[in-house]
Design a protein around this nucleic acid. Structure first.
Length: 279
DNA sequence: ACGCCCACCTGGAGGC
DNA sequence: TGCCTCCAGGTGGGCG
């Protein structure tokens, strides 16, 4: 379930259950995720207290009190499922619960990832920014400094379609297939437009759309969280209905437009858009 | 350097 | 029911 808004929502849901609490047990049930889990994982984490949980791009950064960061990425299918002691006892571990963390507050966190495209690793705080995984990452879209000119500069000279550029985490971080489609729709820009032509006012519009789509989704996630009280892993994507994503054949949601949502394949992924109001 | 394709892995949906 | 194919929200390595 993880693009930036989902990861951010998971982060906010984990904070009250983990921060300030000691990890009393870590159970590693299999090592072979996208990157093999750390050696001696349990020994290196047990006894540590969680000091903070940050996010960079789609990575969760769980700061431990020994100066290490537990980095987690959810891949395509990763979930963080919290159980209180009672529900943990009632719910046996599933075959995709790869890592189980128990805290001194009695809460249990299960990292579940059917496809195993996710990862967890332990890195010293000061080495996180220069870590291979973080080296080439672009700016955070919700930072105030990320504006039209900033995006335009990063698209300059790029011959790839704008959709592909948005998915490329070197351009900016946090955008996946869904929010790329939704943002381009909101900005009225075709996913097939060459990235270098998104300049000036067009880049302004796209940045505004990206921020709006992400913020609205985080809000929706927040309200879902309040309703559920915990990131139970079943939140899914927040907008029950996307405007164009997965809506092939539906009428274009723009009231004044008589177009139809189309699906095209771009670099192996589906793009959904209205060819009439997205240019 | 850049852009594109594919593989990584499992499960769900839909067709026959 | 079963079997087959296609598709899925991410990423990075390898290729031309």
């Amino acid at each position: 379930m993880p693009e930036l808004p989902e990861v951010e929502t998971v982060r906010r849901g984990l904070i009250p259950r983990l921060v300030g609490h000691r990890i009393v047990r870590l159970l590693q049930r299999r090592r072979d995720l996208r990157v093999p889990l750390p050696r001696n994982f349990a020994a290196r984490v047990e006894g540590r207290t969680v000091q903070a949980i940050d996010r960079r791009a789609k990575y969760l950064l769980i700061r431990l009190d020994d100066g290490q960061t537990l980095i987690a990425h959810l891949g395509m299918s990763g979930r963080m499922v919290l159980h209180d002691a009672k529900s943990a006892a009632a719910q046996p571990l599933g075959r995709h619960d790869h890592v189980v963390i128990e805290t001194d507050s009695g809460w249990q966190l299960r990292f579940n990832d059917a496809r195993r495209f996710g990862l967890m690793l332990l890195v010293a705080n000061e080495a996180v920014a220069s870590h291979k995984l973080f080296k080439g990452l672009g700016p955070e879209p919700l930072d105030d400094s990320f504006d039209g000119p900033a995006l335009a500069a990063r698209l300059k000279g790029r011959r790839t379609p704008i959709k592909a550029a948005l998915l490329d985490q070197r351009t900016l971080v946090g955008i996946g297939n869904i929010y790329a489609c939704e943002s381009l729709f909101l900005a009225g820009i075709s996913p097939r437009r060459s990235a270098h032509t998104v300049q000036g006012e067009r880049a302004e519009r796209l940045v505004a759309a990206l921020k709006e789509v992400l913020l609205r989704s985080i809000d929706d996630g927040g309200s879902t969280l309040r309703d559920h009280m915990q990131p139970d892993g079943e939140l899914g994507y927040f907008q029950t209905r996307f405007k164009v994503y997965d809506r092939e054949g539906a009428p274009c949601p723009t009231v004044t437009c008589s177009g139809t949502v189309r699906r095209v394949a771009q670099s192996g992924r589906s793009s959904f858009y209205c060819a009439r109001c997205q240019r």
